[in-house]
Simulated scan of single mutants.
Amino acid sequence: MNSTLIIIPARLASTRFPAKPLAPLIGADGIARPALHYTWQAGLAAARKIGSNARCVVATDDERIAELCQAQDMAVVMTPETCANGTERCAAALEVLGEQPDLVVNLQGDAPLTPAAFVAALATLIEADPSLAMATVAVPASPAVLAHLQSDAAAGRVGGTTVVRSSTGRALYFSKSIIPHVPPGTVPRENVLLHLGLYAYRPAALQDYASHGPVPLELQEGLEQLRFLDAGLPVGVAVCEAPAWEMIELNNPTDVPLIEAELARRAGLEPA
Rank of each mutant, 00 (worst) to 15 (best):
residue 58 V to G: 02
residue 183 P to F: 10
residue 73 D to W: 11
residue 209 Y to E: 07
residue 63 E to N: 10
residue 55 R to E: 03
residue 162 T to E: 04
residue 5 L to E: 02
residue 51 G to S: 13
residue 196 L to Y: 05
residue 238 A to L: 00
residue 16 R to C: 10
residue 119 V to G: 02
residue 186 T to Q: 13
residue 190 E to M: 09
residue 203 P to H: 03
residue 259 I to R: 00
residue 137 V to F: 01
residue 208 D to N: 09
residue 263 L to P: 14
residue 38 Y to R: 06
residue 239 V to K: 10
residue 120 A to N: 03
residue 109 G to I: 02
residue 220 Q to M: 10
residue 42 A to V: 10
residue 199 Y to M: 12
residue 157 R to G: 10
residue 268 G to V: 12
residue 18 P to Y: 13
residue 10 A to L: 04
residue 235 V to W: 00
residue 181 H to Y: 14
residue 6 I to P: 00
residue 263 L to H: 07
residue 253 P to L: 05
residue 224 E to M: 10
residue 188 P to M: 01
residue 38 Y to E: 05
residue 174 F to T: 08
residue 61 D to K: 09
residue 250 L to T: 02
residue 191 N to F: 04
residue 159 G to I: 14
residue 181 H to E: 14
residue 75 A to I: 06
residue 102 D to R: 05
residue 3 S to C: 05
residue 59 A to V: 04
residue 202 R to F: 05
residue 17 F to H: 10
residue 244 A to N: 11
residue 212 H to T: 04
residue 171 A to N: 11
residue 162 T to F: 10
residue 238 A to N: 02
residue 260 E to N: 11
residue 232 G to K: 08
residue 140 P to F: 05
residue 215 V to L: 15
residue 192 V to S: 03
residue 126 I to H: 04
residue 205 A to S: 13
residue 5 L to I: 10
residue 18 P to Q: 14
residue 192 V to F: 04
residue 157 R to T: 14
residue 154 A to N: 06
residue 136 T to C: 05
residue 154 A to Q: 15
residue 190 E to A: 09
residue 34 P to M: 00
residue 169 G to F: 03
residue 42 A to K: 10
residue 88 E to F: 11
residue 86 G to A: 00
residue 174 F to H: 12
residue 113 L to Q: 01
residue 74 M to S: 11
residue 127 E to M: 03
residue 163 V to I: 14
residue 163 V to F: 02
residue 177 S to C: 11
residue 22 L to H: 02
residue 6 I to M: 04
residue 33 R to G: 02
residue 15 T to I: 03
residue 103 L to Y: 07
residue 219 L to S: 12
residue 20 K to S: 12
residue 125 L to K: 08
residue 148 H to P: 06
residue 60 T to I: 01
residue 90 C to V: 01
residue 144 A to L: 15
residue 181 H to W: 14
residue 91 A to P: 06
residue 65 I to M: 11
residue 43 G to H: 09
residue 182 V to T: 06
residue 142 S to I: 06
residue 192 V to Q: 08
residue 33 R to E: 12
residue 122 L to R: 07
residue 13 A to Q: 13
residue 192 V to E: 01
residue 104 V to L: 06
residue 154 A to W: 06
residue 212 H to M: 02
residue 227 R to H: 03
residue 92 A to C: 11
residue 3 S to K: 15
residue 106 N to A: 07
residue 73 D to S: 15
residue 67 E to V: 08
residue 126 I to T: 02
residue 233 L to K: 07
residue 132 L to M: 04
residue 189 R to D: 15
residue 104 V to N: 08
residue 231 A to E: 04
residue 249 E to D: 09
residue 234 P to K: 15
residue 90 C to Y: 07
residue 233 L to Q: 09
residue 250 L to R: 02
residue 102 D to G: 14
residue 223 L to T: 08
residue 138 A to H: 04
residue 122 L to M: 13
residue 51 G to C: 07
residue 63 E to M: 12
